[in-house]
């Protein structure tokens, strides 16, 4: 008797699970298919030569790449220090680093303006010397870094924390000082985690909208990134908007595929 009901339960669970997964996939795929259905390959290729589309694409890729590189450069040591060393105020530092994660992007943009705009705390100082920060391409990069930094640092810190400390100890016992140990032993072992964090940061930077439009403004070629261009053109020329959206979707797929391909060959400790 019990065996009979066990079997039925497994069947229900399997069907239920399958339904859930199907629903989830439909939910994710339908908008993307909807996007693809609204354009044709000819329209798409024609749009690519539209300056609005092209400018946004190039600007987005360059700024997001630059932001990610800076984030890796600054974030890796910070994550390392926070993972390995205890110092007074460490928890506070961690909380502050996480702040941009919960801050609504528009609020972040306004806050950046208050700090770096020409009337701002720091921006005002630079403006005296003729240096404008807000409403420039630099502002785009700053906004992207501000919102994406926590993604990388959290992942990097988690990867460092998960790393067995005896590797570093063994390296030190063999005569390896801090920096060589970091590059020859630690980095190779956390590589996949760091890359995953960088990918997330890159994706977040690429999709950043609220803070960018507030702090960097909306100007083609200088600050109009792909999300901004999609929003602006959607209100006039739907074709350009759809083309940019399709491009962003394609980039996302490529990025995910690259990450999976890289991670496949990595260490399983």
């Amino acid at each position: 008797m019990r065996g009979y009901f066990q079997g039925r339960k497994n069947l229900y669970l399997t069907i239920g699970g399958g339904l859930l997964i199907t629903l989830l996939l439909v939910f994710i795929i339908t908008p993307i298919i909807g996007l693809l259905f609204r354009t044709t390959p000819e329209q798409f290729l024609a749009s690519l030569s539209d300056p609005v589309v092209w400018n946004a694409l190039v600007l987005s890729l360059i700024t997001a790449s630059l932001s990610t590189l800076i984030i890796i450069g600054v974030g890796t040591p910070v994550a390392w220090i926070n993972a390995r060393h205890r110092y007074p105020g460490r928890e506070l530092v961690d909380t502050l680093i996480d702040l941009p994660l919960v801050l609504p992007p528009t609020v972040a943009g306004l806050a950046l303006l208050m700090a770096f705009g020409r009337m701002g705390l720091i921006g005002g100082f630079f403006y005296e010397f003729g240096i404008s920060i807000a409403f420039t391409t630099l502002a785009v990069v700053i906004a992207q870094i501000f919102v994406s930094l926590p993604f990388y640092i959290r992942q990097a810190r988690a990867s460092f924390e998960q790393l067995d400390t005896t590797y570093e100890l063994a390296a030190r016992s063999l005569g390896s000082t801090s920096l060589p140990t970091f590059f020859t032993v630690i980095l190779p072992l956390v590589k996949s985690g760091l890359i995953a964090g960088a990918i997330m940061s890159f994706a977040r930077a690429l999709g950043e909208f609220g803070a960018t439009i507030m702090f960097a403004g909306n100007f083609q070629g200088r600050t109009q990134t792909m999300p901004l261009a999609i929003y602006t053109t959607m209100q006039g020329d739907l074709n350009a908007s759809i083309t940019l959206s399709v491009i962003l979707v394609l980039i996302s797929f490529v990025v995910i595929a690259l990450v999976k391909y890289r991670l496949r060959g990595d260490v399983r400790c």
């Binding site: 303006l113 705009g117 020409r118 009337m119 807000a134 409403f135 960097a216 403004g217 909306n218 100007f219 083609q220 600050t223 929003y231 602006t232 209100q235």
Partner: peptide, 20 residues
């Protein structure tokens, strides 16, 4: 000389009001 193009007029007003 255009520094930014806003999608609503309130955006324009805001940027001038902020002094930016």
């Amino acid at each position: 000389n255009v520094m930014s193009e806003e999608t609503t007029v309130t955006g324009v007003v805001a940027k001038v009001q902020l002094g930016e």
